[in-house]
Design a protein around this nucleic acid. Structure first.
Lengths: 112, 112
DNA sequence: TTGACATACCTATCACCGCAAGGCATATAC
DNA sequence: GTATATGCCTTGCGGTGATAGGTATGTCAA
């Protein structure tokens, strides 16, 4: 029984979305591909993951939205709010702490 | 709404259990504390996480067990089987790939 | 013009897994 | 004698990624 496809990915979509939106505003469909491209196809999160996440983050005040119609198609652009920025900083720090601790356990010479 | 306590931890208990048991056989109660100690209290997984995981890994053939009674208390020692070793190697490789990819996205200068 | 594909949004349902909170039993120490 | 540590276990909840849909418009080739 191989590991689930989502192994090690808990919380990662949120971390990456906040990270990418920190650089510039983007819309959902764009984010889906930006994540894939920024990770050289190593990370792929489908729309069914990204859209609900964006809605949650907006509801929590971490993101703000701006609607715009381009070529007859409507886009919803997301930006990081100060709250979202704090959230990213906290998440990012948590990420570094955990991965550091895990790396130490994995690489330790031996566990008596 | 702060992140869940389990953010970024999906799959980590399995990774650490297999890693620790790679060095030597251990019993469940011992593993709970070994993880905490090996990570300098950064990672703590309670018995409600570790025991079911051990049962699953044994059922999947990744671990083998040996029962022993010591001081009137019975212990169940777990060892990694060849299947478990392969599983650890795969998990470990997956872990490195993902964390590497995520690090790249996080640390990239800017995302056009 | 029709059909395929990309764009762009959305939702509902499922499966998995860490977490919390218990329960049971024995040994040791105060 | 009762608290603490040891050592095993289970049930139920909640969060979240995965899957698999649905709707609509624009573009491009057959």
């Amino acid at each position: 029984m191989p590991p689930t496809p989502s192994t090690f990915l808990n919380g990662v979509p949120e971390l990456l979305v906040l990270r990418l939106l920190r650089d510039r505003e983007m819309y959902g469909y764009e984010l889906v591909q930006a994540i894939r491209e920024a990770s050289a196809d190593q990370l792929t999160f489908a729309e069914g993951v990204i859209y609900p996440l964006l809605h949650t983050l907006e509801r929590d005040g971490a993101l703000s939205t701006r609607r715009q119609t381009i070529n007859g198609r409507s886009r919803v652009y997301y930006s990081v709010t100060p709250t979202g920025r704090e959230r990213f900083d906290a998440l990012s720090a948590h990420w570094r702490t955990l991965t550091g601790a895990i790396a130490n356990v994995l690489e330790a010479p031996r566990h008596a």
